[in-house]
Design a protein around this nucleic acid. Structure first.
Ligand SMILES: [Zn+2]
Length: 274
DNA sequence: CCGAGTTCCTGAGCGC
DNA sequence: TGCGCTCAGGAACTCG
């Protein structure tokens, strides 16, 4: 499941390959993969544009195009962006293809069909509601505290809310809460100053480490060159139900919180009330 | 404001 | 070995 670190790795690996390339042809094989505009308009307005930048906002890949257009890509569960040669057989689950002026194809492959593409002139249409970037220097402990203040929702579902914080998904939410020693069901506004500081640090540490390790590969995720990430070996609690907590040895517990599989140490992350 | 349920999808994982 | 069932999971949405 590509979260911020995986998307960041995709952006870094693809950037030198596609920036400066021009789209000479576009094809959509699964219409619903295109969120906006219609698939026809998407292809029509994409052709002829040059890719001038490739960045990331939250979990969204942002491809800046000439004439002020933006191609935004959300990989969701199983999406991948791959470069290939037209003469190669089309990969399974291919949902859209951009033929580039260097003769290569930029392919959007997505078995689960949850991923989405947008072609817009104002990226704020899609990105405007996103919360702060957790690794941005402006995302300080103070800023985090201010956003948490008064919130009565449980902390984990709040961390997953992209309007609250952009880019954190199920894996890194659990990992950060474990590192900070905070129960996933704690009311967000009830965190002490020390807990807010620990969680802030844990989020940044976990995300930065995962980026450095090429992201987490649990099953389908691969970097654009096909290599798996390395961070899964370093996960402390995620998908480790029954295994000993790396800090205290108590078996890791799985629960469902906000409809998400949630892993935590009942001893290191004790006390869900108040 | 808050939480739970539903939908979209299909491969993985499980039971038999 | 293989069939068929269940389910995870990001985000948007509805409902109580
Ligand atoms: Zn523990």
């Amino acid at each position: 499941m590509p979260e911020l670190p995986e998307v960041e790795n995709v952006a870094r690996m693809l950037r030198p390959e596609v920036v400066g390339r021009r789209v000479v042809e576009a094809q959509v094989l699964w219409p619903r993969s295109v969120a906006r505009p219609t698939p026809e308009a998407f292809c029509r307005d994409l052709v002829g544009r040059e890719i001038t930048s490739l960045g990331r906002r939250g979990k969204v890949l942002t491809l800046g195009l000439s004439d002020g257009w933006w191609l935004l890509v959300h990989l969701r569960m199983s999406g991948r962006l791959l470069l290939g040669r037209p003469e190669e057989p089309a990969p399974v689950h291919l949902r859209a293809v951009l033929r580039l002026d260097d003769g290569r194809d930029l392919r959007f492959v997505d078995p689960r069909k949850f991923g989405r593409l947008w072609l817009v002139q104002d990226p704020a249409e899609v990105l405007g509601s996103l919360g702060p970037e957790p690794l941005d220097p402006t995302f300080t402990v103070e800023a985090f505290r201010a956003r948490l203040a008064g919130r009565r929702v449980r902390i984990k579902p709040l961390l997953l809310d992209q309007r609250f914080l952009a880019g954190v998904g199920n894996i890194y939410a659990d990992e950060a809460l474990f590192l900070a020693g905070i129960h996933p069901c704690r009311p967000a506004g009830s965190l002490t100053e020390g807990e807010v500081e620990r969680l802030h640090g844990a989020l940044q540490e976990v995300l930065a480490a995962a980026i450095a390790n090429g992201g987490t590969t649990l099953s389908a995720y691969r970097r654009p060159d096909g290599s798996p990430g390395e961070h899964q070996a370093l996960l402390r609690v995620f998908r480790r139900a029954g295994e000993p907590c790396p800090r205290c040895g108590t078996p890791v517990v799985r629960a469902v919180v906000g409809g998400r599989g949630t892993y935590f140490c009942p001893r290191c992350q004790a006390g869900q009330g108040r």
